[in-house]
Structures are given as C-alpha cells and as structure tokens.
Nucleic acid binder design. Structure first.
Lengths: 211, 211
DNA sequence: GGCTTGTATCTAACTGGATAGTTACAACCC
DNA sequence: GGGTTGTAACTATCCAGTTAGATACAAGCC
C-alpha cells in the first residue's frame, strides 16, 4: 500500500468525471435524441426519466431545466418527429402513391418516427392545431387531385387519406405473429422490396379512378 | 372464453363494500373484464393493478392468485380478446372484403379489442404459436382465393392480408388530429357509414384481380 | 341437529424497490 | 459578481407483489 499511487478522493488521474463541455444546445439535442429512443421503445408510461438521462450521458436535472416535465418532453419528441415525417413524405398534387412510397421509406429508415407517431395516436390527448393543420393540408391536396380527375372521386378525400396512411404502416406495424408467418429470416431486403412493391400496387388499386 | 351464455345478467347491480359472494369463476371473470378495460385504456405500462382490482370490486390479492402477475394477466387479456376478434371476423374463401367488413364492425362495437391488439403489437414480446397459426390460416385462405382467381394473384398473399388488416383499422386508430379534420361533430353514425363504405370500396380496389 | 376440521375464497395492511421531480451546490465563463 | 451549465444526493410518492389472517362453506363425525 506504500508503493501504490493511492489515488485519493481527488480525481487527479481519473478523468471519469469528464466535465461535459458546456454546450446547452448540444446537451439539449442529446437529451431529445435519447428521449426519442426511450419513448419509441417503451411508450410514455413505460419510458424512464433516469434511463433517458443515462442514454444521453447527461444529468437528469438538465432534462427538467430544458423541457419541463415528462409530458412536456414527450410532446417535444412528438413534435420533433412529426416535422421529420411531414417533410420526408410530402404530397405534391395529391399523389397518394408517391406519398405512400416516401412515407414507407422514411419510416423504414427511422423506425422510431413510426413508433412515436403510433404511440402518440394511442394516448388520448387532444390534437394540437399544428397537427390538425398538417393533416388538413394533405386532405385538401387529395380533394384537389380528385377534382382534377387524378384520384377516384367517389370516396371522401379524408377517408382515402386515412386508408392510405394506414396502408403505409401495414408491414412496419404488423403484429409480430403475422410477420412470423412469412419467411423464416425475419426481414431480408428482398422481402422488403417485395412488400414495398405490393404496397404501392395496392395503393394504386385504391386511388385509381373508378368507372 | 367468450361463449359463456350462463351469466348474461351483468353484475352491474351493486359493487358496494358488501362481502363478496364467494364465487371464484365470477370473480375471475370480473377481474379479467376490469383488466381488459384498464389495459385497453392505458396499455401495459400505464395500467395499474390497484385500479384493476378496484374496477372489479375485488381484492388485489385475488388477481395474483388467479392470474399470476401483471404480465400473465395481460397475456390472458390478449388471448381472450384475440379469440373474440378471430371468431367475429372469419375469412371464408379468402373473401377479404367480407373480412374487412366483419372486423370493422366488431372492433367498432368492441373498441377495447382493437386497442388491446394494438398495445400487444407494440410490446416487443415474441409471438405465440397460437397467434402465428391463426394468422397463417388466414394467409393460406387468401392464397387459395388467389389460385381460384377470386383475388388478384400478382401480389404475395401475406402482403395483401397485412395491408387489408391495417386498412380495417384506418379510421378506428387514425391519429386524433386527422379525425379532427373532418366534420365538427366527432363521430356521427352517418359519417361512420360513409367511412365503412369507403373502406370496403378501397379493399375491393386492392383485391380485385388485375389484368 | 350441533360440533370440529379442512379448504377455497376473500381481505386489510404492509414492504421493498422504483421513479418523477427537487434541492443544494460546484464549475465555468462573461 | 452574476448568470449559465453542470452534478450528486435527496425526498415524497407510487406501485407491484406479499404477509398474515379472516370468513364462508362443505364434509365428517357424534
């Protein structure tokens, strides 16, 4: 015990206490990212504040400083993810097939976005004005396409949109048991391409004008 | 077990703090029913054991005696609800339109069934053999209908089924914000009939044989 | 019938650990 | 100094699961 460096309480040689670089924006972003993963995996009730702080490598306190409480943090995550999905899947000219393709690709590349959206839909919280406005613009675009004869016009635009929206999630959010029915390897790229093609063909069947 | 015609008289008489009649089966059924409601509303993590016992007017302990723990209770609820949906929405001859109609009607009349199924799909638990077998029988029926020329055969049966399954939920599990886009009164019977018709027309567009 | 005993059903109160949120304070930078 | 950013320790509450025991009921025995 005499020849050992005998590290005292002072962290002379131990940089374990790597003092986080004082960067509020970076820390906030780290916390939001960690919260996104945690909420995506476990939902609101299942998510743990301590795990989020740990994931972010930040202190729990900062979470409350920057976001408020757990609910406010969840809302921030939801809003953030909604921006991403909304941008990634535009609906130019009410083209529902292109919309479905873009949304499918985005949610496949960002599974947490799909899960957050789904979990959000299941909490019985009131919709925000922003959310409603986003959806309304999409439904309006579909209605315009109907008037232009590019989309079948004998069904309400909002129903067409709601149906196609759900179709887009058909594989990503399918019951695990249904996915288990398919090929033994869970998710080969080939299989995924096949489903993507089937999805788009199905959407075409829904939206193409009917006699 | 959903076909128990014995006690159709619902025990809605008096959940007062009177000594519970000693009837194990009735208590068990009451607990299962209460758990179904609680899990449907709040999901697994959000559900509270104490609330379930209170809803059932039974003691918390009985829940552990009859079902095991929270997870086992959830599994029991899921299995029970799955039986109901499976029976209510058969798929004779791979008729996906009739399947969609029956499933839509059933889930509309039993919202908790749809919510339980959705919560179940969100937990990343492994699928049971029963679940897989149920889905496989449906997919096989679709494949048979394809061979018989009643359903378009240029898309994989499993994809067709997954897509139609999700379409069925398109209104029931639509984001609240999307539902808010529609008419101001949230859910009129007329609007519901309209959506049902649109859903079935859309399913027809998906499954009808293509040249 | 009355009494005992055994078992299934039910209850109130408790526990140990987890968890959201807080306080007190230190370090940094202007 | 003073505002900002960070950390550790703390608290009050909640909650799944348990303990210990009470009560109804039926079978067995007299």
């Amino acid at each position: 015990m005499s020849d050992s460096p005998a590290p005292p309480a002072t962290p002379a040689n131990a940089p374990v206490r790597s003092p986080r670089p004082r960067d509020a924006e970076a820390t906030k972003a780290l916390l939001l990212r960690a919260a996104t993963e945690e909420f995506a995996e476990h939902g609101f009730a299942g998510a743990r504040i301590d795990r989020i702080a740990e994931r972010a490598g930040a202190n729990k306190r900062l979470l409350y400083v920057y976001f408020g409480d757990k609910q406010a943090l969840f809302d921030a995550v939801v809003a953030d993810q909604a921006v991403g999905v909304f941008r990634a899947a535009p609906m130019d000219d009410g083209d529902l097939v292109a919309f479905a393709a873009a949304r499918f690709d985005y949610v496949l590349a960002h599974p947490e976005a799909g899960r957050i959206a789904a979990w959000r839909a299941f909490e019985q919280l009131a919709a925000t004005e922003t959310e409603i406005a986003n959806f309304r613009s999409r439904v309006d675009a579909v209605a315009a396409a109907q008037r232009a004869g590019r989309v079948r016009a004998d069904l309400p635009a909002i129903d067409l949109f709601a149906i196609v929206l759900r179709m887009t999630d058909s594989w990503i959010s399918a019951p695990p048991a249904l996915r288990a029915v398919g090929t033994t390897p869970p998710l080969s790229p080939t299989r995924l391409r096949e489903h993507r093609a089937a999805l788009l063909a199905a959407v075409r069947g829904v939206v193409e004008p009917h006699p």
